[in-house]
Design a protein around this nucleic acid. Structure first.
Length: 333
DNA sequence: CTGTGGGA
DNA sequence: TCCCACAGG
């Protein structure tokens, strides 16, 4: 999952206020959905579902998250993954296998009535499929939020759009964005509150990483950051055994990137992966346009189709000035 | 994850 | 008023 360069980045992440995040933002859609689907569950692992048994956890997450964004004058555009590169297939196959194992373990835990491990396995079995994406796009449409299908990796598309000046920053939990060149990465953009992480209670705050700060601070180029990522392992390669971020930095600084692979992983050619991070396939013909929230659309989709409480949906919409019974702009024409 | 309601 | 535990679909 992503690239393990946290140790490198820890000195360069700074906390940010919502007020400093006004404006346009490219959201890693698959990443957000995965987060919602893994966390929004009952204690026994069951996700939220409508009366027909369709999963709705992600719709809940998207709805509340987007409302908070709009309240804070953030204009998000959601980016979804396109076709993965050929060299990602190994990772994807491994994930499929793990999900299948987790799925079985989940069913067994439910049978035995072990809710704690049921929850854990249900999380591990989480997949973002086409149905989930389609539902998300439909809801985002009613909320007036644009969506873009990336040609390949969503984070690459987001980085491209940020470098182009079309969005001010990227939102993702993964650090891959930085390898793709995202100038400003924002993590933990959620309403701050205390959370239990591995038994400990901590407060999670929004944080940002400026690529230039990281590169200047470590005295490296983006190309070298990519090399570091490839040494520790990415979604596209497994990295060199025993090499973490700190060691990778030393290797790269001493110019021994290719040499290290030749010695340890002679079968693997890192050049195509490096090229992929440097010049990923992206869609250049996108257009961004935000529109008003279509209250009737949101309510009929969430409440009519997916059994959300109308009172709850309405009271949240009122926070962003969309009043119950208010005509949508379209209905005036 | 996030909003809410009830207890301190 | 603040905090926490719980429900949401």
């Amino acid at each position: 999952m992503g690239v393990a360069i946290r140790d490198l980045i820890s000195d360069y992440k700074t906390s940010v206020d919502w007020a400093d995040l006004r404006g346009t933002a490219a959201v890693d859609g698959n990443n957000a959905l995965y987060q919602f689907l893994t966390t929004i569950r009952q204690p026994d692992g069951t996700p939220l579902m409508d009366r027909e048994g369709r999963v709705t956890s992600h719709l809940s997450g998207i709805f509340f998250r987007i409302t908070t964004f709009l309240e804070n004058n953030i204009k998000p555009v959601f980016i979804f993954d396109g076709a993965p590169p050929e060299f990602k297939s190994e990772t994807l196959e491994q994930r499929r296998e793990r999900k299948a194992v987790a799925e079985t373990a989940y069913r067994q835990a439910v049978e035995v009535g072990d809710t704690v491990s049921a929850f854990r396995h249900a999380r591990a079995a989480t997949r973002v499929d086409e149905t989930i994406i389609a539902g998300t796009k439909e809801l985002l449409g009613y909320m007036g939020i644009p969506c873009i299908d990336a040609m390949s990796e969503g984070e690459a598309q987001a980085a491209y759009m940020a470098m182009n000046g079309d969005v001010r920053y990227s939102i993702s939990q993964d650090y891959d964005s930085l390898l793709f060149g995202a100038p400003r990465l924002v993590r933990n953009l959620t309403v701050s509150r205390k959370r239990k992480v591995r038994g400990r209670v901590i407060t999670v705050n929004p944080e940002e990483i400026l690529l230039s700060d990281l590169l200047d601070g470590k005295g490296i180029t983006r190309e070298e950051l990519i090399e570091i990522g490839i040494l520790v392992g990415t979604d596209f390669n497994s990295g060199v055994k025993g090499v973490g971020a700190k060691t990778a930095l030393k290797i790269v600084k001493s110019g021994k990137f290719y040499e290290t692979f030749e010695e340890n992983e002679p079968e693997f050619d890192p050049a195509p992966v490096k090229e992929f991070f440097l010049n990923p396939p992206v869609s250049k013909g996108y257009s961004l346009s935000w529109s008003h929230v279509d209250r009737e659309g949101v309510v009929s989709y969430l409440c009519g189709r997916h059994d959300f409480s109308e009172d709850r949906v309405n009271s949240v919409l009122e926070r962003i000035g969309v009043k119950s019974g208010q005509k949508t702009l379209d209905s005036w024409f």
